[in-house]
């Protein structure tokens, strides 16, 4: 008899086994990811690095349950994702997963405060408004709570996005090129903020980047070349 998943991977938040992703193209199937295996422990920070087109973002999407792999397994919070449908995966994420995106992905109609409020409302938190205000203060934007994304600079927008990602006390935060749209100085400050919040909230962090400096701050680095794991480096 097979033990339950949680028993098999007690300390893992995310696990992947023999993960492959292929997409049909005019010239046949194109392998974006091939035979990727990884194990992310609670509280760990992991950087997925690689050149453009190496499959970094695809891997992130699969780990977060935003997509389903062509082959292999992903376990998130002990649940095998390919056995869940889209809605079940959404329910699994609700309140437990945070996201930070390269293009910030703030809702343009909402103020900074309301953008942070959104996932809290979705998770049905009673103290949603107070929490949102608290997190906005944590990222240093309390004064700009009523501003809409258009009235904020790129760095400020990403701070709002970081507050939004941590506001629900998630167990894991996925970040896709969080500094990709920012200049070096701003990017550095954003990275500081991200790691500081991650440390204080004891959250697991999986981030995708091609920035070696950023990757170096993670406990572990997974380097992808043409969809395959070339090496794994532990700090």
């Amino acid at each position: 008899m097979t033990p339950p998943d949680s028993a098999r991977f007690p300390a893992s938040i995310v696990q992947a086994r023999a993960l492959s992703q292929r997409v049909p193209t005019a010239d046949g199937l194109l392998a974006i990811l091939s035979d990727v295996a990884l194990d992310v422990k609670a509280g760990e920070t992991l950087a997925i690095t690689g050149a453009s087109g190496s499959g970094k973002s695809t891997l992130l999407g699969l780990l977060a349950g935003l997509d389903i792999a062509s082959a292999g397994e992903v376990h998130l919070f002990g649940e095998r994702l390919d056995t869940l449908d889209e809605d079940a995966r959404a329910r699994l994420r609700a309140g437990r997963v945070g996201f930070v995106f390269q293009s910030f992905q703030l809702l343009p109609a909402l103020t900074a405060l309301e953008n942070v409020l959104m996932p809290l409302e979705l998770a049905g938190r009673d103290d949603a408004r107070a929490r949102a205000a608290h997190w906005l203060e944590r990222v240093g934007l309390a004064a700009r709570a009523r501003h809409t994304p258009r009235q904020l600079s790129g760095g400020e927008q990403q701070r709002v996005a970081i507050a939004r990602a941590f506001a629900t006390d998630p167990e894991i935060v996925f970040a896709d090129e969080p500094t990709g749209n920012l200049d070096a100085d701003t990017g550095a400050r954003i990275v500081d903020l991200l790691f500081e919040l991650n440390a204080s909230a004891h959250t697991t962090l999986v981030l995708v980047t091609h920035d070696a400096t950023l990757a170096a701050r993670c406990q572990r680095r997974l380097h992808l070349v043409a969809g395959r794991v070339q090496d794994t480096v532990s700090a």
């Binding site: 977060a64 935003l66 889209e86 809605d87 959404a90 329910r91 699994l92 994420r93 609700a94 309140g95 997963v97 996201f99 992905q105 809702l107 959104m118 996932p119 979705l122 998770a123």
Partner: peptide, 15 residues
């Protein structure tokens, strides 16, 4: 589309 995708990310189901 972006709004709906984001809401799904945050855990909103189809229903």
């Amino acid at each position: 589309y972006d709004q709906a995708a984001l809401l799904r990310c945050f855990g909103a189901t189809t229903a």
